[in-house]
Computed example of a mutant assay.
Amino acid sequence: MSVPLGVEEIADRIRTMQIRGAGEIARAAAQGLVIAATESKATSVQNFVSDLEGAAQALLHTRPTAVSLPNAIRFIMHRMKSFAQKTVDVESIRAFTISTGQSFINSSKMAKEVIGEIGARRIRDGDVLLTHCNSSATTSIFISAAKMGKRIRVFATETRPLYQGHLTVKELTDAGIDVTVIVDSAVRHVMHEVDRVVVGADAVAANGAVVNKIGTSLIALAAHEASVRFFVAAETFKFSPETLIGGLVEIEERSPTELVDEEFLKA
């Protein structure tokens, strides 16, 4: 059993953060399983399930903190394995798995749009907003508010060391929204100008705790100090089931070379 090249490419792009944002990661993982189902050469249902399990494992070990990724895989794999108990036809389970994967992708995109509509109602005309990192759910809120005719201004942190905030700036600028990019350490300095903070989430624990890009807690503290309302935009597939039984969300630690070069580390 070998993992299809398309799945390996998606896993590598998630691992190296070419695919970013919890929602995009979940959809990419689902697409990876669709590719695995499409390209499987299995001649039995048992072998087909084995092929999909191999692809799932390749995807699971890429970004541990983004709970959306294992949740997307669980969504597809659980349904596929249940269907496997009812059929001996490989083409039937292939079609079912592809349909299930596409269903997850489509419903997650719809969820983003619904969050945009609901979140936009919490934004007032003339609001100054602040966001951190790059969240498709958050940008959906801002763009939906702008489409409603609300005049808004956004502060976007650059989000070091990989500058995901630049992606947010481009998305909002392309939508005609007034955006100011700030260094991460300037958040407390500008908070007195901000009406609302809106961020995304990598994971949400059973007790309501939010896990997001490093620096989010400092922004929350600055908002609390300034009595600025703080909102988190997240789809339900970002809720961590392990935390229901006392499990912790694993926090990913990236390579030190994202901060400094190899020569600095050797000094």
Score class of each variant (00 low, 15 high):
Val3Leu: 12
Leu5Glu: 11
Glu8Met: 14
Glu8Cys: 09
Glu8Ile: 14
Ala11Val: 13
Ala11Asn: 05
Asp12Phe: 04
Arg15Glu: 14
Thr16Gly: 05
Thr16Trp: 05
Ile19Gly: 07
Arg20Met: 13
Arg20Thr: 15
Gly23Thr: 02
Gly23Cys: 07
Glu24Trp: 03
Ala26Trp: 00
Arg27Asp: 02
Ala29Val: 03
Ala30Glu: 01
Ile35Thr: 04
Ser40Arg: 04
Lys41Asn: 15
Ser44Asp: 15
Val45Arg: 10
Asn47Asp: 12
Ser50Tyr: 13
Asp51Ala: 03
Leu52His: 11
Leu52Asn: 11
Glu53Gln: 11
Gly54Asp: 09
Ala55Pro: 07
Ala56Pro: 10
Leu59Gln: 00
Leu60Trp: 11
Leu60Thr: 12
His61Val: 12
His61Leu: 14
Arg63Asp: 07
Pro64Ile: 09
Pro64Ser: 05
Pro64His: 09
Thr65Glu: 04
Thr65Cys: 02
Ser68Cys: 14
Arg74Pro: 04
Arg74Asp: 03
Phe75Asp: 07
Ile76Cys: 06
His78Pro: 13
Gln85Glu: 12
Lys86Ile: 09
Val88His: 13
Val90His: 08
Ile93Thr: 05
Phe96Asp: 06
Thr97Glu: 03
Thr97Pro: 01
Gln102Trp: 14
Ser108Pro: 07
Ser108Tyr: 09
Met110Gly: 04
Met110Lys: 10
Ile115Asn: 06
Glu117Gly: 15
Ile118Ser: 05
Gly119Ala: 15
Ile123Val: 13
Arg124Ser: 13
Asp125Cys: 15
Gly126Arg: 05
Asp127Phe: 09
Val128Glu: 06
Leu130Ser: 01
His132Tyr: 00
Ser135Gly: 07
Ser136Trp: 01
Ser136Ile: 04
Ser136His: 03
Ala137His: 02
Thr138Val: 05
Thr138Met: 06
Thr139Tyr: 06
Ser140Pro: 03
Ala145Met: 00
Ala146Gln: 09
Ala146Asp: 08
Gly149Asn: 09
Arg153Thr: 10
Arg153Cys: 07
Ala156Gln: 02
Thr157Ile: 15
Glu158Gln: 12
Thr159Pro: 01
Leu162Pro: 15
Tyr163Phe: 15
His166Ile: 12
Val169Pro: 01
Glu171Pro: 13
Leu172Trp: 03
Asp174Leu: 11
Asp174Pro: 08
Ala175Tyr: 00
Gly176Pro: 07
Ile182Asp: 04
Ser185Phe: 08
Val187Gly: 00
Arg188Gln: 10
Val190Ile: 03
Val190Thr: 02
Met191Glu: 06
Glu193Asp: 05
Val194Lys: 02
Val197His: 06
Val197Leu: 10
Val197Ala: 08
Val198Thr: 02
Val198Pro: 01
Val199Glu: 00
Val199Phe: 00
Gly200Thr: 05
Ala206Tyr: 06
Val210Ala: 13
Val211Asp: 06
Val211Cys: 09
Asn212Leu: 04
Ile214Glu: 10
Thr216Cys: 07
Leu221Gly: 06
Leu221Glu: 10
Ala222Lys: 00
His224Gln: 06
Ser227Arg: 08
Val232Lys: 08
Ala234Val: 08
Ala234Ile: 06
Glu235Arg: 01
Phe237His: 12
Ser240Lys: 13
Pro241His: 12
Glu242Pro: 11
Glu242Arg: 15
Leu244Phe: 13
Glu250Thr: 13
Arg254Asp: 15
Pro256Met: 15
Pro256Glu: 14
Glu258His: 08
Leu265Ile: 01
Lys266Gly: 03
